[in-house]
Write a protein that binds this DNA or RNA. Structure first.
Lengths: 115, 115
DNA sequence: CATTCATGTAACAAACAGGTTACCTATTTG
DNA sequence: CAAATAGGTAACCTGTTTGTTACATGAATG
């Protein structure tokens, strides 16, 4: 997964409404745009734009079925990010490292810094 | 972690340059702004703005040391997201579910859909 | 103490995000 | 077929992002 694709996935996830849409679509695979719209106050067009963002990030896959569009959640991009980050940043996910104390409690104190 | 905080973390990660800055800071904890700038073509101000985004997402912590600012990577937000998503979306991370075949190869076929 | 160094602020510009309304297209279905 | 239904496009508006240059501040240092 290259930078642009990763950008797209994180960007897509950087919106609570879109994350909720992912929830919904995962929970009712094959649902259509209007089904999703029922759960949101904003206009259908706004929802469609969000769905497009999710689809361009490959987090949602859709297939036309008559006049309707069936929506499916796709976990692959999230898995790819997980795989990459667990190898490249393996400490990120190791719980002892995430304890803030291990991160910052002993500052580097490069030169002077007397207080 | 609430929606807004999660938004901030994903938004911060949705930029290849910022992800690279995280790499750098994780690799040289306690480095300062100029150290980071050396690795980027854009202006120092641009880098500073990115660092601010990372800091507001709590992915970077900084402490003033004289005229310099020491930067530290903080994995806590990523861990929190991981924890939440592994419980809330546990299938996301289970490898067999991420195989696209399991997701979409047998469409729902709600009503007619003859081809 | 004057200068350099590291950082920070202000003001601006271009591009993008996220939303709207109005209108159009295609498919069911009575 | 007429009308309702599901979806899609176009144009527009507003606020945010992402970058710039110019200037200011505060700490080290010769």
């Amino acid at each position: 997964m290259n930078d642009a694709e990763m950008d797209a996935v994180f960007q897509a996830l950087a919106h609570a409404g879109r994350r909720r849409m992912l929830d919904l679509i995962r929970g009712m695979p094959g649902c259509n745009v209007n089904d999703v719209c029922k759960y949101f106050d904003s206009s259908r067009i706004a929802v469609m734009k969000h769905l497009r963002v999710l689809e361009e990030a490959d987090l949602v896959i859709s297939r036309k079925a008559g006049r309707s569009r069936q929506l499916y959640f796709n976990a692959v991009p999230i898995q790819l990010i997980y795989d990459r980050w667990t190898t490249e940043y393996s400490q990120f996910w190791a719980s002892q490292v995430t304890d803030l104390k291990f991160q910052i409690e002993q500052p580097v104190n490069k030169r002077a810094n007397r207080e």
